[in-house]
């Protein structure tokens, strides 16, 4: 955590002088100096760093340079939207990606497999901003089914969730397909079939369970990546997520918000890794904690 916070501090100070961005063009030098002093930005860098570490250690992440609201509060206010968006996207990716992968694995080389392969090539090659705007044009401007932007009810999440999910659907389809084809040729599958188990049970209960292990790792990684990587989607769909807040804060060199954001993201990553490890133990009984 110390390393993360220090890197952020150094990078932000290398990025430029916040006063130059904060102060309007019309402010005099004397007024600028006064402003810098009121924010503690007139101190030498080393002193600023010590103050900064001291504040972080005591849980004071400071107040945004632009408002009187605490930086952590601003970030946490927007955490919910980002989490909802990412969960929605991961659920969509799961609901489509896993069945697609299974379908493709059951009939490799056939029509369904080939059309799903087309989808996964598209999914991994279409840039997010393009897909997002395409979906807006089709579903909100032409068909008027879903709203194009902002918060409202669950409908507002449909387009952004699909935008984010598209690449993950492609990824999961390919992962599951490869793993499942490997498993289906294993001996234990033949044994299960020989026992007279139905094809559904053989595929979904025995083979798929083993095929899920690499998938769970990828799922966790993608989940974490999306929490910090949904910034383009949040911007296109004008969702008040924390990534967009952080992007705006970086552009304005509003350090306290950026630091709060990085701490939240780092914490979430740790939590997700923990969740992935726990999930392992459910899927693979050989993995135990004790």
């Amino acid at each position: 955590m110390w390393a993360v916070v220090t890197v952020v501090f150094v990078l932000l100070h290398a990025a430029g002088d916040p006063i130059a961005v904060l102060a309007p063009e019309t402010m005099t030098q004397a007024q600028r100096a006064e402003l810098a002093h009121s924010l503690g930005l007139d101190l030498p860098l080393s002193a600023q760093y010590i103050h900064f570490l001291d504040d972080v250690l005591h849980g004071h992440l400071g107040v945004s340079f632009y408002t009187s609201q605490p930086a952590m509060e601003l970030v946490l206010q927007r955490l919910g939207v980002t989490v909802e968006l990412v969960v929605a996207a991961m659920v969509v990716a799961l609901v489509f990606g896993v069945p697609f992968g299974v379908i493709a694995a059951l009939r490799p080389g056939r029509f369904l497999d080939r059309s799903l392969r087309l989808i996964s090539v598209l999914g991994s090659s279409i840039p997010t901003f393009f897909l997002g705007i395409l979906l807006i044009l089709i579903f909100s401007v032409e068909l008027e089914i879903f709203p194009s932007s902002g918060l409202g009810d669950w409908r507002n999440f449909v387009l952004p969730a699909f935008t984010l999910a598209f690449y993950r659907i492609a990824l999961f389809t390919r992962l599951i397909r490869t793993a499942l084809i490997g498993e289906l040729s294993q001996d234990y599958v033949r044994t299960a079939r020989a026992k007279g188990l139905s094809e559904i049970v053989v595929t979904l209960k025995h083979a798929l369970r083993n095929a899920l292990l690499p998938f769970v790792t990828a799922f966790g990684l993608q989940f974490g990546q999306l929490l910090g990587g949904a910034v383009i989607t949040e911007t296109i769909f004008a969702l008040p997520g924390m990534n967009r807040l952080a992007l705006d804060a970086i552009a304005r060199l509003d350090y306290p918000i950026v630091v709060a954001y990085v701490i939240v993201i780092a914490g979430l990553f740790t939590l997700i890794n923990l969740a992935v490890d726990i999930a392992y133990s459910f899927i693979d009984p050989r993995v135990t904690y004790g």
């Binding site: 705007i133 807006i136 909100s140 401007v141 932007s149 902002g150 911007t235 296109i236 004008a238």
Partner: peptide, 18 residues
């Protein structure tokens, strides 16, 4: 009063009556 900072989205929101 809403912030839609992406120009294409702002246009789409206007055209769709949102």
């Amino acid at each position: 009063l809403d912030n839609i900072s992406n120009g294409a989205t702002r246009l789409a929101a206007l055209l769709s009556g949102q």
